[in-house]
Nucleic acid binder design. Sequence first.
DNA 1: TGACTATATAATTATACGCGCATATAGAAA
DNA 2: TTTCTATATGCGCGTATAATTATATAGTCA
Lengths: 130, 130
Amino acid sequence: MIHENIIDLVARRFQVLGEPCRLRILQALQGGDRSVNQIVAELGATQPNVSKHLQILFDAEFVTRDRCGNNIIYSITDPVVFKLCDLVCRSTARHAAHVQKYANEGRSRKLTGPNGRHRRSRTSSIQGVH
Amino acid sequence: MIHENIIDLVARRFQVLGEPCRLRILQALQGGDRSVNQIVAELGATQPNVSKHLQILFDAEFVTRDRCGNNIIYSITDPVVFKLCDLVCRSTARHAAHVQKYANEGRSRKLTGPNGRHRRSRTSSIQGVH
DNA sequence: TGACTATATAATTATACGCGCATATAGAAA
DNA sequence: TTTCTATATGCGCGTATAATTATATAGTCA
């Protein structure tokens, strides 16, 4: 149960993880600490974009950083973030399987009666409602 | 490690969780299955807004739904979502403690040399870099 | 000092998102 | 059928976000 006081902070941290580019950055750092340019090379993204995402990850305390001469080395703050990704990843794999399955059957179910009355097929028009 | 094929889906699911109102809805459902209006009453939000968030949660398969007469009853698809919230919640509590601490000390550190040269205070201008 | 490298930031633009309002739709009841 | 209740959806507005480009800042080396 999330306390109302911190629910905005929790949401914000989920939101920070809700960006493919940032997930890729975290994955790169899972392979070990990296400088900005190393991440840029690994992702094939632009340097300003990577820097900005790193700043966002830093503000959310998902990463820490240390200067090493001209380079700034970024590191994972807490490996628990990979546990999070793993959990979402598993259920997403199931989700993706469903999506794939529905894509192969009929598509685009909408809200309607439980038994498909006034419908030509037997698919209920509200997904998840039978 | 997240496979590149599903990284967008994983990010999307994190993003869906990155919204306070949706977290509140999930919390309400943690107390048991609810109809839309029950959730509306519990959150004090508008009905169209709750319906929209529920649709987003449904598309991401965080919730399922069943019609019961005039009511649509929403349920949690997989309690693993609460594990996610719990993990983020813990580290966010630590994060919040830091933020609180920094708020009490000096604020707004920016990028600068390691020893605060050309700065009036001794705070390093890049947070996390000493 | 000046040139060079690494990183951050500002300005811009395009897109996505959340909310409120009005309305449409589905089912139940009369 | 009509009416009522519950839920979903379309629209418009304001805001947030991400990517690009150009530029600023910090540090190193000569």
